[in-house]
Amino acid sequence: MTDVRGVIFDLDGTLVDSRLDFDAMRLEMGLPQGMPILEGLEQTPAGPQRDRMVAIMRAHELRGADEAILFSGVTQFLAQIRDLGIPSAVLTRNSREAAERTLGRWNLTFSQVVTREDAPPKPDPAGPIMIARKWGIPVTQIVMVGDYLFDIEAGRRAGMRSVLFAPQEIPDYAHLADIVLKDFRDAATLLNVQSARSP
């Protein structure tokens, strides 16, 4: 990759391993296996059942925030792009409460943190586009980094290049990403990051 002037990261499963068990969350919330949780919640009418589901999701997310562990190389890569003047942001389907708890626990700072309270959740491209506009950087010069299909789709639909973080098995949708990253210690080389500052 060339001309990378901004990097947007997913949070859970990308920067940190929050050990969230989405299957257990779905089962506890009464959602069908494989259904995206936020979409399943959106289809549930307001009332006691929905309130119960929201409480279950919040409990899982906050537990994940408290147990989150940074992936190897994340701190070093964030420092590299910061030193090069390349802005970074987080775009997560998580709540702001859980996202800020996770980031605060590891003392991670970003120019923007966009959660599901701020923009329609991925794979909707509104979040990435919002970040690009605030930076004033063309979408073609921003990279979206994430571990799941929705991250790749959101980036592609926004006109950005995408990086799939896959530290273990390579999923069947990996071909949709521009690059597959297995270890953040290789990120600077794979993304060919260079100074964003004017000469």
Rank of each mutant, 00 (worst) to 15 (best):
I69H: 13
T92N: 01
T2M: 11
M57S: 14
T102A: 05
V193D: 04
F77N: 04
S198F: 15
R133E: 08
K134M: 12
D183E: 08
G40Q: 09
D23E: 15
H60K: 06
F22N: 07
R5W: 07
G127D: 02
R197D: 11
P48E: 12
Y173T: 04
V139C: 13
R116K: 08
I69Y: 05
L27G: 13
G73W: 01
L31F: 12
L181R: 00
D10V: 04
L41R: 10
M130D: 13
S72W: 06
E39R: 14
A79L: 03
R52L: 09
L149S: 03
R5D: 02
P36S: 12
R101M: 10
R63F: 07
R197C: 12
G64D: 12
S95T: 14
P199N: 14
R19Y: 15
R93V: 01
R116L: 01
F9K: 01
K122P: 03
E61V: 00
V180Y: 12
L20N: 06
P123G: 10
P48Q: 12
Q112N: 08
Q43S: 14
P121E: 03
G146C: 05
P199C: 08
T75R: 15
I170P: 00
D151P: 02
L149N: 02
I137W: 00
T189C: 12
G146V: 04
R185G: 11
S195K: 11
S95F: 04
M130H: 12
D12L: 03
D12E: 13
I81M: 11
L103D: 08
A59H: 14
A166E: 06
V74D: 00
D178N: 10
L190C: 10
D17R: 14
A79G: 12
W106D: 07
V145K: 00
